[in-house]
């Protein structure tokens, strides 16, 4: 897909592990891992809001659009 998830970059910047993030945003580790690796089809605004709050960032810091990759 043309959307790249940069959650791992933000997590590294905030020095936060996946476990910690999972506990903070109250989302299962499995789902968060899928989100981090970009294996999901969609993300809810509520999830995005929670992750942005936890990592103290903007949605644009987490998601990036690439024109090269289609579908």
């Amino acid at each position: 897909m043309g959307i790249i998830v940069n959650m791992d970059v933000m997590m590294a910047k905030r020095k936060m592990s996946l476990n910690e993030l999972s506990e903070t945003v109250n989302i299962s580790l499995a789902n968060l891992s899928k989100l981090k690796t970009g294996k999901v089809k969609a993300i809810r605004f509520s999830t995005l809001n929670a992750v942005c709050n936890a990592l103290d960032c903007q949605p644009g810091d987490l998601l990036e659009h690439s024109k090269d990759e289609t579908s």
């Binding site: 989302i27 968060l32 999901v40 969609a42 993300i43 809810r44």
Partner: peptide, 8 residues
């Protein structure tokens, strides 16, 4: 259903 399951 599949789409819903792949939504986080």
């Amino acid at each position: 259903q599949e789409e819903l399951e792949e939504t986080v």
